[in-house]
Simulated assay, not measured.
Amino acid sequence: MLSASDVLVPVDFSPCSVNAIRAAVEIVKPRGDITLLHVIDESFIKEAVTAGFGSAEEITAKLRERAENDFIAALEGIETEGVSIEKMVVVGTPFVEILKIARDLDLPMIVMGVRGRSTPPAEVLFGSTAEKVLRGARVPVLCIPF
Rank of each mutant, 00 (worst) to 15 (best):
S3K: 14
S17P: 10
L107W: 07
V83Q: 08
F95M: 06
G127C: 02
K29S: 14
M112L: 13
V9G: 02
P15K: 02
E65C: 04
V18A: 08
L105I: 05
V39F: 09
A67G: 07
T35S: 11
E79Y: 11
S43Q: 10
G136S: 09
S43G: 01
A48P: 02
A56F: 02
R115V: 13
I101T: 14
E97S: 12
S118G: 04
E42T: 07
L134I: 08
A73S: 14
A122S: 14
V111A: 04
F44N: 12
V141Y: 01
R31Q: 10
V18T: 15
I72S: 13
R31I: 02
L2I: 14
R64Q: 14
L105T: 08
P94C: 08
E86C: 06
L134H: 09
I98W: 01
P10C: 09
S5P: 00
V49T: 03
K46R: 15
E47G: 02
P108H: 05
C16T: 13
K132A: 14
T80C: 10
G113W: 07
C143I: 10
K87H: 07
E65T: 10
T50A: 15
G54H: 06
G136K: 08
I85Y: 08
S84M: 13
K62E: 15
V111M: 03
L37C: 03
S118L: 07
E68Y: 03
R64A: 06
I34D: 11
E65S: 14
I110G: 03
A122D: 12
M109I: 11
D106S: 14
I59E: 12
V124A: 12
I27N: 01
K29N: 02
T129Q: 04
V91F: 09
T119Q: 00
R66V: 12
V7T: 05
I98H: 09
S118Y: 12
V96M: 09
V39W: 10
I110Y: 00
V141P: 08
E68R: 09
I45K: 02
P94S: 09
G127L: 01
E86S: 15
I59V: 10
G92L: 05
P140A: 12
I45Q: 03
P10H: 05
R103L: 07
T93Q: 13
S43T: 08
E131K: 13
A130D: 00
S3Y: 14
E76V: 07
L63F: 12
S17Q: 05
I101M: 07
V133N: 04
D6A: 06
G82T: 06
V96S: 11
L8E: 01
E81Y: 01
V114S: 15
I59G: 10
G127M: 00
D106N: 15
